[in-house]
Simulated scan of single mutants.
Amino acid sequence: MTDKLTFVQPEGFAPPKGYSNGVIARGPTLFIAGQVGWNAQCQFETDDLAEQFAQALDNVLAVVRAAGGRPESIAKMTVYVTDLDAYRSSLRPIGQAWRTRLGKHFPAMALVGVAGLVEPRAKIEIEAVAVLEDRKA
């Protein structure tokens, strides 16, 4: 998938940790709706932020795979959290969940603290954009 995504690092910028500053993408684009940390039956199995992060990431990846993509197809991701302090204190398990699912693939990213999400038990929501291989007719 590296021929579909080119990562941009401005000269003089410190290396980013866990994200890319920019991504140039070529190919069909998949926009993934915000995914919260519930299972396929829309049921929360945990109230732990890191575990919800892992499940939300699994949900994003399920959409990517359903469209024919791979984890490395993700070009951009926005993460919304209801508790920034809880996020910061969960960086180790969140990082482990990331490495297990995406390895060292780091798309352009933003993390936004929000007052709440539509689902009252949701502590995190992830939306993403992926670039897919051209489908042959």
Rank of each mutant, 00 (worst) to 15 (best):
T2A: 12
D3Q: 14
T6Q: 14
T6N: 12
V8E: 02
V8I: 13
E11G: 04
F13Q: 10
P15C: 15
P16W: 03
G18F: 00
Y19H: 15
S20A: 05
S20P: 00
N21S: 13
G22D: 05
V23P: 10
V23D: 02
I24W: 01
A25Q: 04
I32E: 00
A33Q: 08
G34M: 14
G34N: 14
Q35D: 06
Q35H: 03
Q43V: 09
Q43N: 06
F44V: 10
D47G: 15
L49E: 08
L49T: 01
A50H: 08
E51C: 09
E51F: 12
F53N: 00
A56T: 08
L57I: 12
D58L: 10
V60R: 10
L61F: 03
L61C: 07
A62Y: 09
A67M: 12
G68L: 01
R70K: 11
E72Q: 05
E72N: 11
S73N: 06
S73C: 04
M77E: 05
V79M: 07
V79E: 04
Y80D: 06
V81T: 00
L84H: 01
D85I: 01
A86V: 00
A86P: 00
R88S: 02
R92C: 13
R92M: 07
R92Y: 06
P93I: 09
G95W: 02
Q96H: 12
A97E: 12
W98H: 11
T100E: 07
R101F: 08
R101S: 14
L102C: 12
G103M: 06
K104E: 07
M109T: 06
V114M: 01
G116Q: 13
L117P: 01
V118L: 02
P120T: 05
A122W: 02
A122F: 05
A122E: 00
K123P: 04
K123C: 04
E125V: 15
E125Q: 11
E125L: 12
E127T: 13
E127Y: 06
A128F: 02
E133L: 15
